[in-house]
Amino acid sequence: MSLIYKALCAISGGARNAALPLWAHPAGGCGKVLSACFLLALAALGHAQEQAQDARAQLDAAAQRMIAAELKGTAQKEGWKGMTFRVENNLPNSLGKLPACPSDPQLRSSEAPATPSARRRFEANCPGQPGWPVYFTSQPTLYLPAVVAGGEIERGQTLEAGQLKLAPQQIGKSARTYFTRVEDVVGMTARRRIRADQPLTPALLDGALLVRRGQQVKIVASQDGIQASAAGEALANGKQDEVIRVKNLRSQKVIEAKVMESGVVSSLF
């Protein structure tokens, strides 16, 4: 730096500032020339930093757009309502030396993600520009409103709407099914004790009771194309396709019948 300073002083001492018309009088020293060079160096450094920030911002925005479009399609396919997400991009340090791409970088995923929340690996290209392609990873985190227990639910208890609520849950990398609508869970029974705020999954629940003990039901029978029905009383709880004992209220005869739908059973011959 001292050699550059001396050279600038020698130049300024023997010549007028013809190359720098900001000064009309002979330079009394090297200070003004050095200040001008320092400002030019700062401007160049600022430009380089701006380019690096632009390249980093370009890649971040491109990955955000690509993953957002992908997750939107997944949400529509799966019927997810109210899904939210965030994306963290792990960009390389070499971006500090990378000029910005004149157009939007072209991103290509190295492989299809196994799950919506799996890490993505990208190759970013900017045709004709030095320093490209760039390789980096992106990690999305997904949240989905899911049905959770509003309070403790005992084993064997039938779920009612007042016991349930929706709360955002992070969708993990492993496949796991959540209920996203309260009405899909109402009427099911708990296989085991469920804690307050615990997300409900199919593993925790049994199918809804379609027939309850003591309930009046419709008994239907079909044989040789002839159908008949009679009123009956369920002698046990029953879920879809379960066989329970039912009493025919007209004949008082107890028969076995298969649960077909809510309040309807089919007699077995």
Score class of each variant (00 low, 15 high):
Arg176Val: 09
Gly172Cys: 01
Glu88Gln: 10
Glu111Asn: 12
Lys239Met: 08
Ser267Phe: 06
Trp132Leu: 10
Lys253Met: 08
Gln223Asn: 06
Lys6Cys: 10
Val259Ser: 00
Lys72Pro: 01
Ser2Tyr: 11
Val87Arg: 01
Gln58Trp: 03
Leu210Cys: 06
Leu39Asp: 01
Ile67Thr: 08
Gly82Thr: 02
Gln157Arg: 12
Glu70Pro: 00
Pro105Cys: 11
Thr177Asp: 10
Ser94Thr: 15
Leu34Lys: 02
Cys101Asn: 14
Gln216Lys: 12
Arg213Val: 12
Gln169Gly: 00
Ser109Cys: 09
Ala27Lys: 03
Lys32Gly: 04
Gln58Tyr: 00
Leu164Ser: 00
Ala149Arg: 05
Pro102Cys: 11
Arg176Ile: 13
Ala118Phe: 00
Ala257Cys: 12
Leu71Met: 04
Gln129Ile: 15
Tyr178Ser: 03
Thr189Ala: 13
Asp197Tyr: 08
Thr201Gln: 13
Leu235Tyr: 04
Ser109Pro: 07
Ser262Arg: 13
Pro133Leu: 14
Lys32Asn: 11
Cys101Pro: 10
Gly46Ser: 11
Thr180Arg: 05
Ala69Gln: 07
Ala68Gln: 05
Leu45Pro: 03
Ser109Arg: 07
Ser222Phe: 04
Val265Thr: 08
Gly263Gln: 06
Arg193Ile: 14
Asn90His: 05
Arg176Ser: 11
Cys126Val: 15
Phe85Gly: 00
Ala10Ser: 14
Pro202Gly: 03
Leu34Asn: 08
Gln215Lys: 10
Ala52Gly: 03
Ala69Ile: 01
Thr74Glu: 01
Gly46Phe: 05
Leu166Glu: 01
Pro145Arg: 05
